[in-house]
């Protein structure tokens, strides 16, 4: 495996793969490191309906596989490994992975975000035993059962709609009195007989021994906590940025997001950022793709200045 690269892209989601296509076409030796599966978090969804250019809903994993293949067509190397260290060494960057080290003239950091958890009792203990972050993956386990979805954004509503095809009852538990999701999704949820919405409510505890059995739900208006019998609970309460490797290199806001502008440059020379690690990103595949392209073009400008 080649050790020295022009660009190493950290993250193989929409931003990283879109950037990779452009870096490859700029004839730069480009390596993409992805710590989980190529395609990023969007592959946990069953459909994507708002990616421009497709009149019919598409399967996100198919879209992302095409992006990966498209980048490989231009010589990009995709490596399924985790960047564990990122250090500036002289004029280059060093990236450490498990049992290996690479160097690059530039880094394009597009490591995306990870599922946010509530941090309440029982959640981690029952993760994989009824508590889940992927309805597409786990819905078949809940055929004819009662499930809850936590959240009020696009992801939560997509999860609820998907689960309603399997479960007997889906309760959408949202901490506010209105949803953030696209109106078209809200309409579908409100029309679905199997989905009910619990407004102004928060889960305070996940109960169960071997598997999830109930949730303790706080009604924020009455301040009362009631148990709710439940076989599955799906978390869709947002994400946290994967910026651990950047904390000593660039300015992060109080929530760990990178603060930058349309240039997608950072104060660290040769370090560009893209996608969901950036403050203000609205978590859409189309946005991440565009940001990936923007970062790649600026990265290319930087590399050309070194030539």
């Amino acid at each position: 495996m080649e050790k020295n690269w022009d660009v190493i892209i950290v993250g193989g989601g929409p931003a990283g793969l879109a950037a990779a296509i452009y870096c490859g076409r700029a004839l730069r030796k480009t390596l993409v490191l992805e710590k989980k599966v190529f395609g990023g978090q969007i592959v946990f969804s069953d459909i994507i309906e708002n990616y421009p250019g497709f009149a019919e809903p598409i399967v996100p994993a198919d879209l992302m596989e095409q992006m990966a293949k498209q980048s490989e067509r231009y010589g990009v190397v995709l490596e399924n490994d985790e960047a564990l260290g990122l250090v500036r060494e002289g004029e280059n960057w060093r990236v450490d992975v498990y049992q290996n080290t690479y160097t690059a003239k530039a880094i394009l950091y597009a490591a995306g975000s990870a599922h946010r958890f509530l941090g309440v009792p029982g959640e981690q203990e029952l993760l994989g035993r009824g508590v889940s972050v992927c309805a597409t993956c786990d819905a078949p386990f809940f055929q004819g059962k009662k499930v809850a979805v936590l959240g009020g954004g696009d992801t939560a509503l997509y999860e609820a709609l998907h689960l309603a095809k399997f479960a007997s009852e889906v309760t959408l538990i949202h901490r506010r009195g209105q949803l953030r999701a696209e109106r078209i999704l809200q309409e579908r949820v409100f029309k679905n007989d199997r989905i009910k919405v619990l407004w102004d409510s928060e889960v305070q505890r996940f109960q169960g021994a071997q598997k999830l059995e109930a949730l303790d739900v706080l009604d924020k208006k009455t301040n009362r906590v009631e148990p709710m019998a439940c076989d599955g609970a799906f978390l869709a309460i947002g994400t946290i940025p994967n910026t651990g490797l950047l904390k000593d290199l660039v300015q992060l806001d109080e929530n760990g997001y990178v603060v930058t502008d349309i240039s997608l440059r950072t104060e660290a020379r040769g370090l560009f950022v893209s996608g969901e690690v950036i403050k203000g990103n609205r978590r859409q595949v189309a946005i991440s793709v565009g940001m990936g392209v923007q970062a790649a073009l600026n990265c290319e400008e930087y590399l050309a200045s070194l030539d």
């Binding site: 989980k36 599966v37 190529f38 395609g39 592959v43 946990f44 069953d46 399967v59 996100p60 994993a61 596989e65 399924n80 992927c134 597409t136 993956c137 786990d138 819905a139 078949p140």
Partner: peptide, 14 residues
């Protein structure tokens, strides 16, 4: 795994 689990599909080559 299950056919609807996309991460499962993407992990298979590994």
């Amino acid at each position: 795994w299950a056919p609807t689990c996309m991460p499962c599909r993407l992990m298979e080559p590994g």
